[in-house]
Amino acid sequence: MLRMLRHSFVALTLIAGPVMAADEIGDAERGAELYKECKSCHQVGAGAKNRVGPQLNGIFGRQAASMEKFRYSKSLKRAGNDGLIWDLEKLSAYIENPKAFASDTRMNYKGMKRVGDRNDLLAFLRVYSDNPQDIPEAQPTARALSHDIDPTILTIVGDPEYGEYLSSECLTCHRADGTTEGIPSITLWPEEDFVVAMHAYKRKLRPHPVMQMLAGRLNNEEIAALAAYFSLLEE
């Protein structure tokens, strides 16, 4: 009950005054901890780039699906065209249940159920919405994944045609249209993230046994070919 009240209070003040400081939203420090869940896909902070998900600097006040060069789902694009601006209330609703908010969203996240958690997380993100370049941490808070693979592997140019054939093995489980249900989407992953992830499976750093097995027999060229193919796949 209390939580509910606070939540509606927050929403109300937001309508009254569009800009809220982070400390009015929640506990940004705790939010930084919660943000770890988001890090495998999103970057925020100085130098943040789009990865599997768009970078989150300036997300407050940004029009939905408005980052150039990022391929959004149809529903988020539609929402953006319809004038959706990300504010506390909208972000909170989206994070609570991404698929309920945007049914075909590519954000593979089950949702953050507790409003207190969402407020803390958003307090953290709010910090990066004013002047991200002024924020002391020089490094973005999230690099997709550790890059301890041989850098030459990342320079291999994949053959998408070979990737198309190899991909048929992935598509038995991973849906080409990006739908997720028990199995994450790999459609439109940035090539580098794809390569890093596959090598992490190959070296058994990532735990999933099916993926370890399948990645285990792919050579560097084959992984590059798959990455090239999935980064280009049309819906």
Binding site: C173, E181, G182, I183, P209, V210, M213, G216
Partner: peptide, 27 residues
């Protein structure tokens, strides 16, 4: 090369395995 689930796995892993099978079915 191959793998098989292990006896004595915890409930979370077993649930994730089931959810994965549902995803596989749709896929």
């Amino acid at each position: 090369d191959g793998f098989i689930s292990k006896t004595g796995e915890d409930a979370d892993l077993r649930r994730a395995t089931y959810e994965e099978s549902v995803g596989w079915y749709s896929g």
